[in-house]
Nucleic acid binder design. Structure first.
Lengths: 366, 366
DNA sequence: CTGAAAGCGCTTACAG
DNA sequence: CTGAAAGCGCTTACAG
């Protein structure tokens, strides 16, 4: 990632001629000070004067030079947003809500991907500092959070979303991952399953860890056995779901139900079931409706596997093995993240980190 | 969308103290001019001087004030990006690629959603102008493009992606929609279908129109009948696919195959087939393997419908009725859009609009 | 209610 | 190779 700063100067800037406040002031017959006040709705200016200024501005097609204003006010009306990956549906649903909330308040959103890299994430905080963003909303990429704490200590308003890394100590908008996972696992048990596996995520990430904990809690509460051979951890991407479920279902006596940690892993699982799993001479059969383990079934009945997954997506009901999905309150997460960051920026955030835990909802599919 | 400009002043700005170039210069024992040159890798400064300056900057944790630099250079190293909707997978795949290309060059991305509104889109061009972005990459929301032409005429470097609205006359990165749709429709015919319907998009949008044209071309070339009752136009969202396919399959003698205009419509179609379509007392049956229309079949065999859709998504292979998908070269689109905009910014764009048409690829599923 | 003036933090001809 | 000085376009005490 080489930054060629000097290019900024080498570039031939097109003429793009725009009116300045001086021209507006001249046309309206006032000083730039008054013009500025009028344009910023300062109540102290005579409304007739303000009218004149506004008319002049309109005629000239004036719009304030944002860089100049920011230089003076030290506010950019811009929020930096970091996501580990822009192509992941859940992150983008969240980004969409954040953008909506911000746009409604005249804020812009500088969106960057950390590419799931801690180094990139740190670099981005510097990038944002340089650009004087008013605040940052970040979905952390890893389990490390001390750089967030450091940035906040340096005075950068900061709100984390979705994940809670170690040592961050900043505001955060999270969901009840444990409760959601527990409910999903219980729902599978409600179908008659007494053996339920886990297609999990990276346990260093709070989401994966908490969902795992919820899964385990459900097993414990229901008196179901924990079988570590059927608990796997992946990177929460499609390939990882494909691989993990495939490995487990190739084992003798695999369970007939799995809790799946997120949407992409879910896609991967479904993918395996619809391709390799279809033709697999897999010993993974278990009587689903009776909940009674059957002897190794040579002709695969892998198709009878049932899944409950975190994340309710538009396509979730279409994934053939999906029985339950845990819906996250994405809209509310976006709303709250924006509320928290704006409060921080305004200095109304208090001096303690505020951690929100929003509820999830279990959705039942066919 | 009320913008409260005065808030920019009311906000209590946190102390966030950062070093200025004056302090760096002082510490290095040079003028701010020399410090600036050193920090910008001006080859004219003595390398020993440059070293001293860089060391001082590092010690002070200096990073240039971006607003001040922009005010002077009139370049912001920021590209404005407009998408009709941030939650649509295809747009975000594209945004992800654009972000990657831009980040590698030290550019930031100001991302905004036009919410599929022309008015919003126009407003955003003004928003970007005010913020002095170096250029704009836009996925147009509607069929109207004259505001893009106007912005370009005012000197704003501008590249459109995916869609080509009327009267834009700017650079654009498009794909061969017609060819892709034609290939997909032919592939359905290759399965034995002699009657193929269309689950289409808004014909005012170039993508929907071109895909429609490709579908019609395939029919014509193959000598298949055009049946307007089985050509429908929607808004390219999930609900629209659900509704249109449902309506068509409820008609007597509906075809057994459909070309579907995009991913979301495809999800909607699949959704209908898996829910309403399953229980429907639909007269839509047609012998798929023989290609011979059957008499009205009361017990629905709607499940035998086969689809070919534009957009290959991670979940496309999992959509049960999907036989073919048209893959768009998203990575290349992002790359080319960034190349074009940077060339425009550098003044190397030439004086004629450059329209790129990238090839698609047909993917066969199960 | 309005204006003259200072200044935000850079970059860049210009002069040496 | 380096520095003094101007200036980018705003906003905002301060004075009136």
């Amino acid at each position: 990632m080489i930054q060629k700063k000097q290019e900024a100067r080498r570039i031939a800037v097109p003429p793009r001629k725009v009116a300045t406040i001086r021209e507006v002031a001249a046309k309206a017959g006032v000083s730039t000070a008054t013009a500025s006040r009028a344009l910023n709705d300062d109540p102290k200016v005579l409304s007739s004067t303000a009218q004149r200024v506004r008319k002049a501005a309109a005629r000239l097609g004036y719009s304030a030079n944002h860089a100049a204003r920011s230089l003076k006010t030290r506010a950019t009306r811009t929020i930096g947003v970091i996501a580990p990956d822009l192509a992941t549906d859940f992150f983008m649903l969240l980004a969409d809500r954040i953008e909506g909330e911000l746009a409604a308040r005249g804020y812009g959103l500088l969106l960057c991907s950390s590419r799931e890299s801690l180094a990139e994430e740190k670099r981005l905080l510097g990038f944002f500092a340089e650009r004087l963003v008013d605040g940052v909303i970040a979905i952390p990429a890893t389990a490390s959070g001390s750089h967030f704490k450091a940035a906040a200590a340096r005075g950068m308003p900061l709100v984390l979303a979705d994940r809670s890394p170690r040592g961050a100590g900043t505001d955060a908008v999270l969901v009840d991952n444990e409760g959601g996972a527990c409910a999903a696992t219980r729902a599978l048990a409600g179908l008659g399953h007494r053996r339920i596996g886990l297609v999990g995520g990276d346990p260093r990430l709070s989401t994966a860890r908490e969902r795992h904990a919820g899964y385990l809690r459900a097993l414990a509460e229901l008196g179901l056995p924990r079988e570590e051979a059927f608990e796997r951890y992946g990177n929460m991407h499609i390939d990882s779901g494909y691989r993990m479920l495939g490995q487990m279902l190739s084992l003798p006596g695999a369970p007939g139900a799995f809790f799946v940690v997120n949407a992409d892993t879910h896609i991967g699982c479904t993918n395996w079931l619809m391709t390799a799993g279809r033709s697999a001479d897999s010993p993974a059969a278990e009587g689903v409706s009776t909940g009674r383990a059957m002897a190794v079934a040579p002709a695969a009945t892998v198709g009878r596997v049932e899944l409950a997954a975190f994340d309710e997506m538009p396509y979730s009901p279409l994934l053939c093995f999906c029985r339950f999905a845990v819906e996250q309150p994405v809209a509310m997460m976006g709303q709250e993240a924006v509320r928290l960051i704006l409060e921080r920026i305004a200095g109304d955030g208090g001096d303690r980190p505020r951690i929100l835990r929003l509820p999830t909802r279990l959705v039942s599919h066919g």
